Computed example of a mutant assay.
Amino acid sequence: MTDDGRTDFDFIVGGWLIRNRKLTDLTDRACADWVEFDATTEGVHLLGGLGNLDTFRVADLPGRGPFEGFSLRLYDPATRLWRIWWGSTAQPGQLDVPVEGRFTDGVGQFFAEDVVGDEKVGVRFEYRNPSPAVARWEQAFSYDDGVTWQVNWVMDWTRPE
């Protein structure tokens, strides 16, 4: 096995409980109202370790009801970069623009340019996995080409007991 980065997301594999904190309206940059909810996820390896997939399930997302999503992550050994796609029941038949990046010193940062609510935004995903039983993911948007970032969704992951 190599340590070129392809094992960075090995912590995803298996089951997790997720405590979410999310802005209620990601299309409104002035939104300051947060909602909290629980979810579960299950991650699996793909392509001999060059990828992984996790499912995301919420029994009752406030204001929406049941919600499902998934993340597909693929690793390119030539560039040592990960690409991450997100799909969900919020936008059936579509994948979000992939974010791209890598882990450095235990923190994974992944970036893309996208359009949210008819406005061009920078998107950042950040992953931390300080122990086998705990992980954190954050999503942030930038409206000024990455000078500042507004965190709009935080997931705190714990292993079920």
Rank of each mutant, 00 (worst) to 15 (best):
R29P: 01
D118V: 04
K120H: 05
D54I: 08
Q94E: 14
W137D: 03
V107F: 11
F11I: 12
K22R: 15
V115T: 12
T55Y: 11
Q139W: 12
A59H: 10
P132V: 08
L46D: 02
V134I: 13
L50E: 09
T158C: 08
V35M: 13
V35Y: 01
F110V: 00
E126I: 02
P66D: 11
L53N: 10
D54A: 07
L23S: 04
F103H: 06
R21C: 06
F141K: 01
S142N: 06
F9Q: 09
R102A: 13
N52E: 14
G43V: 02
G106S: 04
E138M: 13
D114F: 00
R80C: 07
D76K: 13
V107P: 10
D145R: 13
E119S: 03
A39M: 02
P160I: 05
D144I: 05
D54G: 06
P132C: 14
A59D: 15
V35D: 12
W85E: 02
D38E: 15
R136P: 01
I18A: 12
S142V: 08
R136S: 12
C31E: 10
I12N: 09
A135F: 08
F37I: 02
Y143T: 03
G69P: 02
V115Q: 02
S71E: 11
W85R: 12
T89M: 09
Q91V: 10
F103S: 02
D10T: 15
T55H: 10
W82K: 11
N152E: 07
V58E: 07
G65F: 12
G106T: 06
S131N: 11
R102Q: 10
R73Q: 03
G108N: 07
Q109I: 01
E42I: 07
T27G: 09
V115S: 03
D4R: 12
E126C: 12
L47T: 14
S131K: 09
G14L: 09
S131W: 10
D156I: 03
D28W: 00
T148N: 08
E138Q: 15
G69I: 01
F67I: 01
R102H: 14
G108M: 07
V116F: 01
L17G: 09
D3M: 05
M155T: 06
H45S: 07
V44R: 14
L53G: 07
R128P: 01
V44K: 12
G63D: 04
R159D: 04
Y127K: 09
R83Y: 08
T7Q: 14
T104F: 11
T79C: 05
S88F: 02
P62K: 01
D145S: 11
G108H: 08
L72I: 00
A59Q: 15
D25E: 11
T7P: 00
A140P: 04
L72T: 01
W86D: 06
D105N: 12
T40P: 00
G93A: 03
V151L: 05
T2A: 14
R29Q: 09
V154W: 00
V123E: 04
I12M: 14
D114I: 02
V35P: 00
D105P: 01
L17D: 14
P132M: 13
D10N: 15
D25A: 13
K22D: 03
D105F: 00
L61V: 05
Y75Q: 11
A39C: 06
V107D: 10
R29I: 02
F125R: 10
T27S: 14
C31M: 08
D76A: 15
K120S: 09
F9P: 04
